[in-house]
């Protein structure tokens, strides 16, 4: 079976400090995969490498069988095809909710998902004219997920998506990921929160610079 996202023998160091060593990992089916590890263990670094933002020192990353670090074009393609969701939402403050989502739609020229439908599904239709600073933390994270989804991604990478939200919002956000999985898009979530992993089909932990499958 062809993998959707696969990395082979990834190595990465910050100076002389090795963070990831000979890391192998793949996602083949629409599922929710959890990446577990304490702060500083390299989860964000791994997400940077998987999303085409951070060149690994060694190893390959394939998205739909395309080597994303082969050239700049592949790297940009990977960034477009991977929906990134950050703990701090990373929305552009000067743009409205609608504009934040639409720049992705315009950039990727997605025809699969309509913005209005996504806003509806995320329950943020009435917020589309607001600016990020006018939203609650939970609402911002919903907008960030909507933006990631709008690009019709091959996979969604969510780095600590529930790190800043209260427990009720946490459950809502994790349910959104379940919904995304149902429409056929795999989700990879990094977290150090046990509740998050209860929604995952598979959980890996970053341990001693290696990724180990913990449980399925």
């Amino acid at each position: 079976m062809n993998s959707i996202l696969k990395c082979e023998n990834i190595k990465f160091s910050y100076g002389k400090t090795e963070v990831l060593s000979d890391l192998n990992f793949s996602v083949n089916t629409p599922s929710i995969t959890g990446i577990k590890g304490p702060s500083g263990s390299g989860k964000t670094t791994l997400f940077g490498i998987l999303s085409g933002l951070l060149n690994p020192d060694a190893g390959k990353v394939y998205l739909n069988e395309i080597d994303i670090y082969k050239n700049y074009k592949n790297k940009i393609l990977a960034r477009k095809k991977i929906g990134l969701v950050f703990q701090n939402y990373n929305l552009i403050r000067e743009l409205t909710v609608f504009q934040n989502i639409q720049i992705v739609e315009d950039l990727v020229r997605n025809n699969r998902f309509k913005i209005e439908e996504i806003l509806e599904k995320m329950n943020i239709s009435d917020l589309k004219s607001r600016y990020p600073d006018q939203l609650s933390i939970g609402q911002r994270q919903r907008v960030a997920i909507a933006r990631a989804l709008c690009g019709n991604p091959s996979v969604i990478l969510a780095d600590e998506p529930t790190g800043s939200v209260d427990p009720s919002n946490k459950k809502n956000i994790l349910e959104l990921f379940l919904h995304i999985k149902k429409v056929g898009i795999p989700v990879i979530i990094s977290s150090h929160d046990q509740t998050t992993f209860e929604f995952c089909d598979k959980v890996f932990s970053i341990n001693e610079k290696l990724l180990m499958e913990e449980y399925t």
Partner: peptide, 13 residues
């Protein structure tokens, strides 16, 4: 820098 980084992560060239 923050906005530029966000745009880059979304796939802006």
């Amino acid at each position: 820098k923050r906005e530029i980084s966000i745009l880059s992560s979304l796939g802006f060239t």
